[in-house]
């Protein structure tokens, strides 16, 4: 969104120097657009969240509490590093910006692995550490529990994965000096999106792991 086209000739004449929209206006529009996009996504996640209560009621599958808690902590710390990254570029601290973005992406990947490899257990592994069960046993075919669990975690994991891709893109562009303290919408948008993914998990985590009686 770099320029606005207008038809009336008199209006064009009034702006002989071109019709570039001021950056602050672009920024406001970009922010509003991103928030509207996230609001639209809320319907998707809201539907999944509601489905959990309709189909599971006051019960839940018996999942590894430690694994869920650890995954949540990792995602929260990742969000903190993304915030740090955005703050750093806004203050011209290129080194911290790049380093924090990379840490955030790495933690996002760890979260993704924890969900897909450990909780979903796609490789059919088994094992424990200090009495903590490391791999899940719930399958998508396990009735409503499996179906809802995989739909919720799967949709969320997909967003985590896309968030990691966005972070790596801004990291790569940041290395080439693409962002400045004055202009870094890409970083801000990625950070907001990443925090949004975190907000979704803030609701999904208790809904999947904590609420209701384990069966």
């Amino acid at each position: 969104m770099s320029a606005v086209s207008t038809t009336p000739a008199s209006h064009d004449d009034a702006h002989a120097g071109g019709h570039e929209v001021p950056y602050s206006t672009q920024l406001r529009s970009n922010r509003l657009g991103l928030w509207l996009f996230m609001f639209s996504e809320l319907f998707l996640f809201g539907a999944l969240f509601t489905t959990r209560f309709v189909l599971w009621g006051n019960t839940r599958p018996n999942l590894s509490q430690e694994l869920g808690l650890l995954a949540t902590v990792i995602l929260l710390i990742s969000s903190f590093f993304m915030y740090r990254s955005e703050t750093a570029i806004a203050n011209g601290d290129q080194k911290t910006f790049l380093r924090s973005a990379l840490v955030a992406a790495t933690m996002g990947v760890i979260f993704f692995i924890m969900v897909v490899v450990m909780e979903w257990n796609i490789f059919g592994l088994s094992g424990s550490l200090f009495g903590i069960e490391l791999f899940g046993h719930l399958k998508p075919s396990d009735g409503v529990y499996g179906g809802v669990f995989y739909a919720m975690t799967g949709m969320h994991a997909l967003h985590v994965l896309s968030g990691v891709v966005f972070i790596l893109i801004i990291w790569w562009n940041g290395r080439r000096g693409f962002f400045t303290p004055e202009r870094h919408w890409g970083v801000e948008a990625t950070a907001i999106y990443w925090h949004y993914v975190d907000v979704i998990w803030v609701f999904f985590y208790p809904a999947l792991y904590l609420m209701g009686k384990a069966v």
Partner: peptide
């Protein structure tokens, strides 16, 4: 509460109605 804290402090929702640039 957790969501509100993230939206307020990390996502800077207040920027939506602020006149500011970077």
């Amino acid at each position: 509460l957790k969501a509100a804290v993230i939206i307020q402090n990390f996502m800077h929702i207040a920027r939506l109605w602020q006149e500011e640039s970077h």
